[in-house]
């Protein structure tokens, strides 16, 4: 064997062995359990906290509102569409600072302002500027939980 290789082959072998040792320690434990990824990351993602509590949790306590809501056109809506994400309130009833009580022309207009891209079969629409301009907000007349129970 040439003298050069007598030095080079052991040298490269050392490099490769060092790499394999480093590799052994650098690969995370759960890597490759299900596929070419860190299996623990699935659990980490699943364990992230929620912000929207979900309608089922809301109506557990707010049963009168739920009953009213179910009786009218907004029956399909989830509470947090209008009231905002409130998992914190669901955990601790006293935390109410994130609760939103909407009812402005702008907010209701997100769904109900005239837009030709909205199918009339799907959603009732009005001209939010022209519709009863003497009133300031939609909730001045409409009860959002039972929209056709109009206030006078």
């Amino acid at each position: 064997m040439p003298v050069q290789l007598k030095t080079l082959i052991p040298l490269f072998a050392v490099f490769i062995i060092l790499f394999l040792i480093a590799r052994h320690f650098l690969i995370p434990d759960s890597f490759g359990k299900y596929g070419h990824y860190r299996a623990n990351s699935i659990d980490e993602i699943a364990a992230l906290p929620i912000n929207y509590a979900g309608k089922a949790v809301c109506i557990d306590c707010h049963d009168t509102e739920a009953e009213l809501l179910a009786s009218d056109a907004h029956a399909g809506l989830s509470c947090e569409v209008c009231h905002g994400p409130n998992a914190k309130h669901a955990d601790d009833y006293e935390i109410k600072e994130y609760l939103i009580k909407q009812g402005t022309r702008e907010f209701c207009g997100r769904c109900h302002s005239l837009n030709p891209a909205r199918k009339i079969e799907v959603i009732n629409q009005i001209d939010i500027k022209e519709h009863h301009p003497e009133k300031e907000n939609c909730i001045d007349c409409h009860n959002p939980h039972a929209v056709w129970e109009l206030k006078e």
């Binding site: 399909g76 809506l77 569409v81 799907v122 959603i123």
Partner: peptide, 9 residues
């Protein structure tokens, strides 16, 4: 969340 809040399903 997007499914939860969609008002029209």
């Amino acid at each position: 969340a997007c499914v939860e809040v969609c008002p029209t399903g």
